[in-house]
Design a protein around this nucleic acid. Structure first.
Lengths: 200, 200
DNA sequence: AAACGATACGGAACGCCGTTCCGTTTGGCA
DNA sequence: TGCCAAACGGAACGGCGTTCCGTATCGTTT
């Protein structure tokens, strides 16, 4: 899981690993530093903090990750991919498609809620985060659509909601769930999923 | 509805209207300018834009509205108050408490969704917006609690959700609803309210 | 081993933003 | 009319993201 796994060629087309050792080392250091800073200061921590923690200049950070979103994507790519891959698996092992959907959404919520400020940045319309938004959507919306369709086919839920809207809604509900002990995003998401049930 | 109605003494304690004509005029101009800029550029428009539109210096804007949140509150106070007052009225005229709750929430969502960026700023944990958050909560949570309780007493909904959480959830769902034609916050909020129904 | 280009580095500098501060102006009253 | 509290405007500050470019380093080639 090291090497920031360049070369899957899946979402952002793979760049060949740099020829130079220092470049590779710095990229690693930046990923580690970013992950650590994101945990303590949140995803919106100043770029300078990350550069400092990595022992690297500002130019370096921008050369490796042209936009802040690229850095965030790189840090969380594995977890997003894992979440995407969990979808079909859950469908296979759960009692009903609706149950699978619920568990999958729960997993996603757990992920978002534990990443300080990620949900907020994900929906932020500040220019520069479209790439982040797009990456999450590209990976997760198809999975969600699949689960949704399965549940709809089974007659468990209404079929008039797009996967995109559901994902956005869930993401929105997770905003601020950290940093406010009185707000339980999980419960609200459960309510939302419950509201999806076909009014038998 | 002019004069920024200072003196209700309700939420932010009333300051006596300034003795000086220019001060009153500038405050008016700022409120008008802010309202207009908020419509075109959103609630996060640069302070300088508002000052310029009002034909006023930066110092002036900060003297009248010590924090950005104060300005936003002043601009939207009437509408928030109107929303708060609509709660009991709806309860009196609706068929059931749950219907009243639904209509009231709809009204709130309509308000939020039509104010470019308001929902986002409302949940933003950037220091300086707590006052805004607090104002909305102070005015609306009690109303929401009242409606919720009525519906719970009537046995229409589960009773294990705090009004605060519901308001936050609804506010969150409204984030980004402007600026994305593929995301319909209203529908998701309806789903949420539907999920509230007692699983008869 | 030495020299050389490509590659990457670091951080000063720029522009934008919110906010503060203070010298200047003005309104209202004596 | 003269005075001064009140209010004004905008320069200045600090923090941020991002760009730019002179400098240092790596890996190769001779």
């Amino acid at each position: 899981m090291n090497d920031s796994d360049e070369g899957t060629g899946d979402a952002a087309q793979a760049k060949a690993p740099s020829k130079r050792k220092d470049a590779r080392r710095n990229k690693e250091a930046l990923l580690d530093a970013a992950a650590s800073v994101f945990v303590t200061s949140g995803v919106e921590a100043p770029v300078r903090d990350i550069a400092a923690k990595a022992g690297v200049g500002l130019g370096t950070i921008y050369r490796h990750f042209p936009t802040r979103a690229d850095l965030i994507i790189a840090v969380y790519r594995h977890q997003v991919d894992a979440c995407a891959e969990a979808g079909p698996a859950l469908l296979a092992t759960s009692a009903t498609p609706h149950a699978a959907l619920g568990q999958w959404i729960n997993q996603f919520v757990d992920f978002l809620v534990t990443k300080h400020g990620l949900a907020a940045v994900l929906q932020s319309d500040n220019a520069g985060f479209e790439a982040l938004h797009a990456y999450f959507l590209d990976r997760l919306v198809p999975v969600c659509a699949h689960l949704l369709e399965a549940a709809a086919d089974a007659g468990e839920i209404r079929s008039d909601l797009e996967a995109y809207e559901l994902m956005r809604g869930v993401g929105n509900l997770c905003i601020g769930a950290d940093s406010d002990p009185d707000y339980d995003a999980r419960r609200l998401v459960e309510l939302l999923i419950a509201g999806l049930r076909r009014p038998n």
